[in-house]
Design a binder for these strands. Structure first.
Lengths: 233, 233
DNA sequence: GTCTATAATCCGATAGAC
DNA sequence: GTCTATCGGATTATAGAC
């Protein structure tokens, strides 16, 4: 009788290292992330890692890639929904689910590249970011067309909503808002609704609209979007 | 002829160290902050610092205190304004000015205490935070009474606006929004106005108000406020 | 109050044997 | 591919002389 061992994972060691690196980062954050600890977790000594990765920076770049890819998948799930409103809400839910499921990944995605030992973000990651921006802006645009959101610059409206969501999450994660996960889910929705309907009285809102400050000269609010393929499966 | 040297600064060394610590942190951030570098900046060797501070944590706590105190002073400036609306807008401007003038201080204020080597925030700093929350919530409340903001839970409305402002600043500081300081000032105001008037169409806003999700059971949205004295001068 | 000297750890990365 | 051994550097913090 033969025991056949398939060589399924020819280059598996790099994958194993990446997996451990993600675990390590997700558990102990950026500060607790060192090549030595990573090696210990993989079950080898530190120099062995360097056979598979150029250095710490390269490992972290892969962790970051994994984070962005997972994030994109959470958002892409909304695209399958049938109506504009459902896709819009679905994108918000995807965001919320991701930040709750993977707070540290969300953290590393908002860490300055220099802090990770990189001069700049790798091109493919920037492309991933751009594509996620595009998903979101497209949802806003189609909701404007569908009469759900007010007419206006979709990019501008996107940023207002993005900042609000991002800020809520940051405050929650840094424990400036002390509450349970369930309470935060409720807060996220309730505060989002408040943003939709506005916080000013109708009277003051009218007054505010009359003193709009138009701005000449365009601002590029979000970095340019590049196309990128995402495995939806 | 005598040269009289007054001993004006009896305990000045601690103050000098704190000043250098703030400089060091403001210039090189949390990562570039070490007792040795601090000592070099002060002009002594590292062990000398320990005569005046218990350790790194104690120094950082003082830096943090300085940051919060300055922040509070920026906000308190708005209290002198004559009308509710001006105090409200003044508080927003104070916030914006602070985050632009002192991005790193804003950063350390939103750094997890453990990351600074502390088990928890010192009580007096927590009190400072509480008093700043109170300033802001009071501004919202009086604008509700004055018919500028919609009636509702002032704490809830505060959080929506706070999250939006905080999120914008975070994105700007981490260069997710690439723009000049002037452009950001414009964006901050324009996006704030959007938050005031709402992003949804009136039709959809009505629909949204009809499916409000009431929540039974109170949530403590912000940590309890304690009173604290602030030097306004 | 400040110094020199040093302990005790950690880090990233490399050389060279196997 | 992995190991041992090590380089060269950083850090917090302390002991003891002056």
């Amino acid at each position: 009788m033969f025991h056949i061992v398939y060589a399924v994972n020819m280059s598996s060691q790099r994958d194993r290292i990446l997996e451990c690196a993600c675990d390590l980062y997700l558990k102990h954050g950026l500060d607790g992330f060192s090549m030595r600890k990573l090696a210990r977790r993989v079950g080898v000594t530190a120099p062995a890692i360097y056979r598979h990765y150029e250095g710490r920076e390269a490992v972290l770049a892969d962790v970051l890639r994994e984070a962005h890819r997972t994030f994109a998948r959470y958002l892409y799930a909304a695209l399958a929904k049938p109506t504009e409103l459902e896709r819009f809400i679905g994108a918000g839910e995807g965001f919320l689910n991701f930040v709750i499921d993977h707070p540290r990944w969300y953290g590393i995605m908002h860490t300055a590249p220099e802090h990770l030992g990189m001069a700049a973000l790798p091109e493919d990651i920037e492309a991933l970011i751009g594509s996620v921006h595009r998903i979101w802006i497209d949802r806003v645009r189609e909701c404007m067309d569908a009469g759900i959101l007010r007419e206006g610059d979709p990019e501008m409206t996107s940023i207002t909503m993005w900042a609000h969501a991002h800020g809520l999450v940051q405050l929650y994660h840094e424990s400036a808002l002390v509450m349970t996960e369930d309470e935060f889910r409720w807060l996220f929705e309730a505060s989002g609704a408040r943003l939709m309907t506005g916080v000013a009285t109708e009277e003051f809102a009218r007054e505010l609209n009359n003193r709009v400050t138009p701005r000449d000269g365009e601002i590029t609010l979000m970095p340019k979007n590049r196309s990128v393929k995402i495995e939806t499966e």
